[in-house]
Design a protein around this nucleic acid. Structure first.
Lengths: 345, 345
DNA sequence: TACTGCAAGACAATCGTTTGTCTTACATAA
DNA sequence: TTATGTAAGACAAACGATTGTCTTGCAGTA
């Protein structure tokens, strides 16, 4: 009676490397060498073919879990973001996911609602699950990351973390330049919520460019957003309150398209026409921007390419490449109906 | 000279179970028993405390990869969907992600653009990565799934796969009931794209309810959508073409809000006012629906709770619970500005 | 003949857990 | 005194790969 190993060569279900090896009367090592095309191992073509044929026959697929345990790359990325299902993040994620899947990577998504404890905890949990690297979107990262990391719209400069961000200075130039050309001089501004990463850099760029164009930024005409929401309601109350005091502005530079839609609504409800009385400039170019009535003039953030750029940078970092600290993405001015020549009032 | 094991008790980095065990002068097994609270093992409280203290001290975290290899549950789900960053899917994903993270699960997202080869391939790849189950959103699944599966808006009834779907009959009743009450009798319909899962069931329900209300559904007033896009452009050309032949309809029942926005735009461009001349009814209740001008009357799909319901069902299935084949989610009519009493024309 | 070299592949350690079975050593009971 | 029971923990075999080192046998060479 021959000694029977516990493994059965062929099965109804999943085949392991050793089952395959036993079936082929080879050692698991040899099979592994063939299937992975390991160089420097001499295995005759006959055997190679036999192995490959058997692998095909049984539909063998390496168990990635086992492979990971060896310390191999898992081809898995952890993505950190504040929120799911919202315009900006969804747009970036679309680019991220597209590129990662194309490159044969899978990814975990973890959302943290800006909670510092979760932001601290998730990288460790992702590490325990063996991700190769982390992609953080609009996230206030801790000073030290345990894994190779690339951030999108990062809140701070962190050692060894490449930050992909919009070129805010250029964005401000496009936005204010456009309004200035149309003759607007009294402009209302929206300042983003303090927890949103872009707020500060964008506001700084706005002030800088406004000064260079000789445009005044006054506190009375500045709306400070503070609610953590992703509906147009965001932009409504600020404009409504503003209208109760001042009606002498001719344009509003909104923080984003969502708030611009709310702003238009508020102006409309306040009896003002857009762009007849007031021009409204959005930011982001979300999908419905071009189909809104009036369609939104806006600064387009190429969310998809921001996402794919970030993902591609992370993969390059994983491959050992040295990366710059900051990569800026150029915005684009989309002129539509919500802006027009300044009304003479 | 004592025999030194290769493992160093404390390190700058990651501590493994065996390092911890060596440091404590215990076997890895014992440490594992304590940390996992395995019942039926007698370990004195003193030792238990010692172990826990050391684990805290070194910030020990079990390597989930290694644990998975044992065949334990990975607390990981694979999510299959056609597309990223689009309203419906993003909304559902938001509910899915919320519930899964709350329950301590992580998830992979894989998008397939309705490509059958990818739909076939991804479940296997996810399985190789050790997911416990699969959640498929708007996906034409193969007849047999290799893992416990729950689907959202599934295209077909599949053995052992619970399908979470909108109650389309109720939705049609709400939509047509509303238009009927407002006096609309000549209604234009949009029929969804054939590859979209909801199209068929919704169209059937629409026909059924229309008949029961005595409303006529004519081919001339039926727009068949066929483009795979997620921008309002979807609804524009159909209405434009319709207007060239027939202008005697008083309402449009759109396939979704996105196409409704396009439809309103097309009606507007065609010189018709909404809702003055034509009422427009959307479907989905996307975020910008309420801030559109005019704001959209629509059938709200509670996307978040569809997602969280599906996720929760999957977890229950993983726990061994038997599930019904279909779970219906009730829609809701959101009456806003885009519908009004039928114009007398 | 004896040695060298290489092709072809086996063997075994390893990754970090989990988990079934064994071993001590002491305490209690007969 | 001897048997028995049990607490406390060690040991080792998995899980499914990867990978460095060894073995075997044969061909070619000095």
């Amino acid at each position: 009676m021959t000694t029977r190993k516990p493994k059965i060569p062929k099965d109804g279900q999943r085949v392991s490397l050793s089952m395959l090896a036993e079936y082929l009367d080879l050692s698991p090592a040899t099979v592994s060498f063939v299937l992975n095309n390991v160089p420097g191992r001499s295995i005759p073509p006959v055997t190679r073919e036999r192995v490959k044929a058997a692998a095909r026959k049984f539909g063998y697929r390496p168990n990635l879990i086992a492979r990971s345990l060896q310390g191999c790359a898992t081809r898995t990325i952890g993505v950190l973001l504040p929120e799911l299902g919202e315009g900006y993040h969804a747009g970036v994620m679309s680019g991220v996911g597209e590129l990662l899947m194309k490159e044969g990577y899978f990814y975990f998504t973890a959302h943290h609602r800006h909670r510092p404890d979760l932001i601290e905890e998730y990288p460790r949990m992702l590490m325990a699950r063996g991700v190769d690297g982390i992609l953080a979107i609009d996230t206030k990262l801790p000073a030290k990351m345990p894994l190779p990391t690339v951030s999108v719209a990062g809140h701070a400069t962190i050692a060894d973390v490449t930050n992909v961000m919009l070129d805010h200075h250029k964005a401000a130039q496009l936005a204010l330049g456009h309004l200035h050309e149309l003759g607007h001089r009294r402009i209302a501004f929206m300042q983003g919520q303090p927890f949103s990463s872009d707020s500060q850099s964008r506001w700084r760029a706005t002030l800088l460019v406004a000064r260079s164009l000789g445009l005044e930024v006054t506190p009375e005409l500045t709306i400070k957003l503070d609610q953590d929401m992703t509906s147009p309601e965001l932009g409504y109350p600020g404009i409504t309150q503003l209208l109760q005091k001042h009606r002498n502005f001719t344009a509003v530079l909104c923080f984003n398209d969502i708030s611009a839609i709310g702003a238009i609504r508020a102006l409309h409800d306040g009896g003002l026409s857009v762009p007849g009385d007031v021009s409204v400039l959005g930011f982001d170019d979300i999908q419905s921007a071009s189909y809104h009535v009036p369609s939104l003039t806006t600064i387009r953030q190429p969310l998809n390419s921001i996402g794919s750029t970030a993902a591609s940078l992370l993969l390059r970092k994983l491959a050992g490449e040295a990366l710059p600290a900051i990569v800026k993405i150029a915005p684009e001015l989309m002129v539509r109906e919500s802006t027009a020549t300044a009304a003479k009032r």
